Amino acid sequence: MTTMSSAVRNATAAWLAASLNRPEDAYTQWADRRLAVLALGRRFCAFRLADELVHAAGNATGFPTPTTILRTLAGPVIHDPRGSRYYALLPPAPPGPDLGPHATYLGLGHYIGVPRVGDDQQTETWSSYWAIPMSAPANLCDPNRVLGLIRAGTAALDEEADA
C-alpha cells in the first residue's frame, strides 16, 4: 500500500471515479472486485504498452527494471500482469500517430480496469495494480515522456527483430 495520506487517497479516488457518469459505481466495483472499469477521454486517457516494449525501452536506455523506467514518465502507471501490459495514464488528448504493434492509444469511448487507490503491490491473483501509484488527483504522466519510452522500446524491438 502507498503511504499517501487518507485525504489524498480519498481525493484521488474521487477524481478517478468522476470519470463515470455515476461515480458511485466505481466505489462499488472497488469494494467488490478491487478494480473499477473507468471511462477514458474526459479526465484522462491511456497508452496501453506491451510488457516487452517497456522491458526493451528499459534495457535500451540503461534502466534495470520496468519500475525504474516507468518512474521517468512522472505519473501513474497500471500493470495488468494477466494481460502482460501496462497502462500509462495521461491527460486527455486527440489520438496520436500510429505507434506500432506494441503501443495503443485509448481515449474517448474506451474503458480500462483501474485498481483501488493504494493497491500498488502485485498479488498471487494476477490482478492489476499500480506499478507507479497515482500521487494526487490529476497528477498524470508527461505525454512526451510516454512517447519517448514508446519510441525507445520500438527501436530496441525492431533492432532485435533485425538481428
Rank of each mutant, 00 (worst) to 15 (best):
T28Y: 11
R43W: 10
R9M: 04
T28C: 08
C45E: 05
R48A: 15
L157G: 05
Y27G: 15
A39R: 14
T3F: 11
P133E: 13
C45I: 09
G62F: 10
D32S: 14
I112Q: 02
A14G: 12
G118N: 01
L73H: 06
E24N: 14
L106C: 01
A50H: 09
L106S: 00
L147H: 14
C45S: 14
A56F: 03
A155D: 08
P95H: 01
L106Y: 00
W30Y: 06
I112D: 02
A11L: 04
A60E: 05
A57C: 05
I78Q: 02
R151G: 12
R34E: 15
L73F: 05
H102D: 04
I69D: 12
Y87W: 06
H102V: 00
A18R: 11
L38A: 07
L49R: 00
P101G: 06
P91Y: 00
G62E: 09
W130V: 08
F63M: 10
G58D: 04
H110Q: 06
H79D: 12
Q121V: 15
L106M: 05
P64A: 14
E124C: 09
L49G: 02
P137S: 07
L99S: 01
F63A: 14
T2W: 02
P133C: 05
G107D: 03
L38C: 07
N144A: 15
T154G: 02
L140C: 06
T2Q: 02
Q29P: 08
S128E: 05
A26N: 03
A156T: 12
C45W: 01
A103M: 01
W30Q: 04
S127A: 15
A7R: 12
R33T: 15
T3G: 15
L35A: 07
Y111E: 15
V114T: 12
R34V: 13
H55N: 12
Q121R: 15
L73Q: 07
T125W: 08
